[in-house]
Design a protein around this nucleic acid. Sequence first.
RNA 1: GGGCCGUUAGCUCAGUGGUAGAGCGUUCGCCUUACACGCGAAAUGUCGGGGGUUCAAAUCCCUCACGGCCCACCA
Length: 904
Amino acid sequence: MNETTEIKTWDKAYIPKDVEARWVLNWAKSGIFNSHSDLNREPYSLVIPPPNVTGALHIGHALNNTIQDFLARSKRMSGKDLCWVPGTDHGGIATQTVMEKILKTENTSRIRLGREAFTSRMEDWTVHCKETILGQLKKLGCSLDFSREAFTMDEKRKTSVFHAFKKLWDDGLLYRGERLVNWCVRCGTALSDIEVEHEERKGNLWHIRYPEVLGGAGLVVATTRPETMLGDVAVAVHPDDRRYQALIGKKLRLPLVNREIPVIADGFVDSSFGTGAVKVTPAHDPNDFEMGLRHKLPRLKVISPAGKMTEECGVYAGLSREEARKKILQDLESQGLLEKTEPHPHAVGVCYRCQEIIEPLLSQQWFVKTKDLAAEALKALDAGQFKIYPVSWEKPYRDWLLDIRDWCVSRQIWWGHEIPVWYCLKCNAISKDTPFHQIPNLKGVVASEKPKTCSACGGSEFIQDPDVLDTWFSSALWPFSVFGWPDKTDDLARYYPTQILVTGYEIIYLWVARMQMMGLYFTGKVPFSEAFIHGIVRDKKGKKMSKSLGNVVDPLQMMEKYGTDALRFSLISQARPGKDIIFSEDSLIAGRNFTNKLWNTARFALMNAVSPEELGDLQDFPLEAADLWILSEYQKMIASVREEVGAYNLAGAAEQMYEFLWDKFCDWYVELAKLRLQGSDLNARKTAFRVLVTILIGVVKMLHPLMPFVTEEIYSVLKRWDIQPADFLMNSRFPSVPETKITEETQKGMSALIEAVASLRSLRSQLGISPGLKIPIICQGEHSLELKFLKQNLSYLVALTGGKEVSFLNSTNGGLSAKVASAVSSSFSFYVPLEGLIDFKKEAERLGKELQKVESDLSKLSQKLSDSNYLSKAAPEDVSETRLLYDTARSKKARLEDLIKVLV
RNA sequence: GGGCCGUUAGCUCAGUGGUAGAGCGUUCGCCUUACACGCGAAAUGUCGGGGGUUCAAAUCCCUCACGGCCCACCA
């Protein structure tokens, strides 16, 4: 108990800062986050989506990791042997881009540094970033097993990557070939199809005339990219297009370069678009590439990897794409060949990391054959071995796998896993300076280190493939590489496959699908049986957060200002399945207030504490109505929280707990318990405190996955009263539901009491009766059950409404003749005879309004009950419920009318 | 072009067949010895429009409008 704060020193308002710092340290020291294959428990594992080492964590990471921590702590407290593996991702292009920006501020560059120096600079940066990120995760309270920290490019993961690469190679699933790839001229690398984003941009459709070689008018093509015309090798029309029948097979003269190109017929062409004639540039357009294959056309490269026009382009050589477009249009115009320019907005591909326009370029790249891999992933999905929550993501996932294309895995950057392929200079007849990406059919050897001699020719000089692997290649192996794969480790046997993966929908294809494919291929098992897909955090206006927009939120700043538990509460309570989160600072206020409410509830309990030595267990005490009622509400709360968490509706779970603690426990039970806690009857005090502290401890346990810090702080003191105290909350179990029988009388009595109190309070407030004034209350009631309850628990009514003596009117001796204020509830009428203090005109108006409301209810109800269709077709329970409501409303109406009669 | 999701109180969102809810904000009254990060009381909604199914629709179906997202090789 030495580390706990005593109640006397507790602040009136919860101050998170010191408390959080202390528990971060205590948890780390204790090692409770670490998993040790506890064979008495069922294993449950998950791996963190490793954040890129590009800087600090943003609010989206906070959401992702809070969800995981919620689940991790919950599973532990449900008795699982939990393993949550932390780590970071080297992040390929993204990280290299960040470093290039840093270098620019230092007036140097990647090229100037050279590959070796650059890579070593990246390694230093990585060390620094990892420290930041892991520190932030600790501050967030994440119960990760930090002893297992992994990095996608550390030595162990290098081994995993090499083995994966080699196996794919050996199995014929990996090949190098010339394809038209998505090329980012800024990053200087190829990208996979899903790394290209499509943006709607303004553009034009230019109509250009291509004359016939033999002097005819030729035809007009429409294009959005006139600069690629230099690489045209044909013009295609639809075979059935009447307009162009005569031209098929004829030669056209390509303007500006005067090359002769044929008119070909291809079913791909849409006659209704543009002019119905398409210029064909196989080296720079994916469709044209395909057409080129079909018609055996040459591929003429006119744009270089740097985005400049090539030597092929004559006077245009060396110009940028934009400059070339401008000049070509000018030249066409002056030759009278530009027939039309019409605005044509269209989607262009841009780099997902730097937003530069993607250039389709021909080059030699490495590809993974994905069709068979995807088929296995689909099989697992169909067999129910893998499930996605919410299910609405299942269809997009399935569709993507069905329509999958080969995965380009080579990147022409320096930061990443080097491709473990070596080329013998002699066999391949190349030199060290050969422009690598232009050379087809290289014979390579897969090896983790440079081979000594070539097995074919005995040569000893090799160069390694200069490319690195797509960063997602190593990420795809993450769920098993973190456990030591390809070694057959104990960890792998114990914790793989994992149970769940928590991630955002933006990387379902980039990551989730690839993990499924690779996991199934390399281990024969789905890497995780469930994926929990959450939304992304947006700003107030619903915009995606990005550094360039300047609308990013720093989670640390929010934690500093409102507390980590408040941030976690705010994020989780907005994380509805399938929904994005609109983040605004206002939402943290509710979290902070709730944290404070819990804190003060605990403070209240401790101020009224009975020492544990004097206190027995719950069943040793004679419980009264309020106790039974709150215990039954507590039961309901526990059950529904379980249900919500089971359905991964964490927001729903948070809502249930919030409502129970604040609206039920604090607003009603604590107020009623004060009667005994602050009274003189020791046994009564003990009873009330036992119930209070039992439920509070239970609530603190239930809330721990959501708000670990404040709950741990409170529990560190409250555990003296816990029947099964644990060193830390996470090592305790969720409360079992206590056995309590609540009678119908108590149930109905409490409901009637709550309604009655509300109507009396409303009366007081609306008539402006001073809050301090104790009022005499005369009660009249008909329902014997509720009346009996009220009489037995009169102190409840008095305490909650600021009443003094309560008297009862017999229902037979009629109403009152004197003027009174009245509170009419379903079961009771209360009269407050405060002549002189009450404005009876106002009271008459007030009752009149209530009467109006009752009358409108009544007419709806009677309409329903006079409908024979309703009576015959609706469920009998529903009809009897309606009858009950009708009777109640009628009784209220009659009583209100009588009262108003006396007043006016 | 295809698909998905959303449209409920000023804002952010619950509610998925039986008389419209929460948090924040607003108004009024209270420093009632756990909490003013609080307590009590209020105001505010033809549940996007239209049609249909049903005794009964915010809830199911159709359709339109608006907003958002994902996918896509119409130059």
